[in-house]
Design a protein around this nucleic acid. Sequence first.
DNA 1: CGCATTTTTTATCATTTGTAAAATGATATC
DNA 2: GATATCATTTTACAAATGATAAAAAATGCG
Lengths: 187, 187
Amino acid sequence: MTIRESILHIYPLPEASLRLLMELLEPVQLRKGYILLQADKVEKEVYFIEKGIVRAYAEREDSDITFWFGQEGDIVISMRSYVDQQAGYESIELLEDCNLYRVHSHTLQQLFETDIAIANWGRRFAEKELIKTEERLISRQFRTATERYQELMQHQPGLLQRVSLGHIASYLGITQVSLSRIRADIR
Amino acid sequence: MTIRESILHIYPLPEASLRLLMELLEPVQLRKGYILLQADKVEKEVYFIEKGIVRAYAEREDSDITFWFGQEGDIVISMRSYVDQQAGYESIELLEDCNLYRVHSHTLQQLFETDIAIANWGRRFAEKELIKTEERLISRQFRTATERYQELMQHQPGLLQRVSLGHIASYLGITQVSLSRIRADIR
DNA sequence: CGCATTTTTTATCATTTGTAAAATGATATC
DNA sequence: GATATCATTTTACAAATGATAAAAAATGCG
């Protein structure tokens, strides 16, 4: 999926608006392990993923939990920085070498205020993420850990190949030991 | 908080846009127990809560889980209907007699396409809800049920007075029995 | 008030999940 | 090939939570 396609996949933009948005994007290549955004900082950049996979995680004392994976076509953002100019709760780590496109959050905000199609594109982006997050919250409660794992295998089989089971376990809301037990039981 | 204030609280609108939006709103009074929106239907209405409290819940076989409470100033919406014209996952039940304002989702969508301030208002609304939902997902994982309950008591003490503990327990992701134990331990 | 209904608490037992530590497996580097 | 490092699985035990049933308390209503 090209960047162009992934932008249009969120919300259809007229050619002029699309061009406005795409002109802002600067390509960046970064290596696996790089920390793209840091929690507790007001992050001013937004990234589009062309190639690679990243995780968003929140830290606490010794452990961290992964609550989002970003892949080709996804947008990486420090939500609280982007919305409220406040330090965010998430850090972003590259789990593979990545080809990204970067845009200053401020520049994007300016487009939102001047181009109505892009404002609606930004609206739709947030709405879609919201639906996905709510569904995960609900799934946590209705389904057992085993069911959630099987669901993930069905819907995102590629993820299992690209991401360590420790991160997957955290994403599913269980420990790695627990996930290992589940995998043994299913077998 | 008036409807006017709660709209502006989400995102500042110029007077003209605010008027456009408010003119669409029709007041409705409904009684406790009324089911405002139904899961598995494409719901065409959006509601603003002026007075009262509601819950969003998802059903499954015998049980249901509450994953959102709406109070004065909040907006009630079937997210998937609103975004994708698809049947939603949530039903909405009034937990008190409510004063609401209703607007057709379609009418609102038209405003989004013609008034850039309102489009950005809609964007900000979704973004704020997204942040709240992500934070809850993270909190589920980091904090024990006891901590989550104490957090809720601190941040939303009013909720405990207005909503049954069964719904609260479900919202916290535990059973009512479990919540009752927690309350006994804290005492 | 008195009865019926709903909500909340208490008790018991089964199950799930977490914690900690060790064992195994995989991969990279010298 | 030996060693170091990291990921995964396994084991044993402890703690948290769920399921169920029943009692107690609170609420609503004629």
